[in-house]
Amino acid sequence: MSDPAFFDGLVKILFVCVIVTSAYIITTRNLVSLVRVYALQSLSLVAIALSLAWYENAAILLAIALLTLVFKVIVIPYFIATVQEKIRIKRDIEFHFLSPASSLLISLALMIVVYITLSRVISPAPAEGSLFFFGAVIGISLVMMGMMVTFSRKKAITKVLGYLSMENGVLLFGLFATELPFIIEFLIVIDLVILILLTTILTVGIDSTLEDYHNRLHRFYLWEDQEESP
């Protein structure tokens, strides 16, 4: 089964999944599906990490896949979905500077720019269409697209999802560019979880009146204690 062509095809399909999900994150107005799509994107990353682990026989990639699965597919999306229910916002229809169509076009342009820049910077020059080079390009593009979401949306909770999508890009880039020590990957995820907890709790404050917020906050402190202690 360890056929390079099969592996190649599989990973390319997963790349397409990642790009489609990030395009969806850029354009959608529906917040509920936004979280689901983010979970889907993380799941594709898990699949990529698993197939890489299978191809390279690297146990560390398995560990990274597991970590991503637990935190980015289950814990964080579940948490954000719960918060969304509490603040009762369903749609984020405000775009700061960019309309969905133009942001799609810009992200296309960004990908091309990243492709050209990376092929110049990386030495020795990568083979054309090499999977690892592709992975790095898509990783960086995902970072850029996530940044666009963070800065072009108005609702803080959408910004959070943009940030998460950036983080996924870094993970993808890291998977293909090099092998970081597992402890570093682990600490980053912990950092991410704390950051997301804080920002979503603050988000509740932005989107509601203040007295209301304090009542809700007391409910959420319980949440925070549970999540941060392990």
């Binding site: 970072v143 800065f151 803080a156 910004k159 940030y163 980053i188 920002t199 603050l202 932005i206």
Partner: peptide, 23 residues
Amino acid sequence: IDAALKYIFVASVAMIFAFVGLI
């Protein structure tokens, strides 16, 4: 809260780039 969120988003988004640099 506004100021804190702005602080987190600007600093953390930029720090993501720093991590790409570290990779």
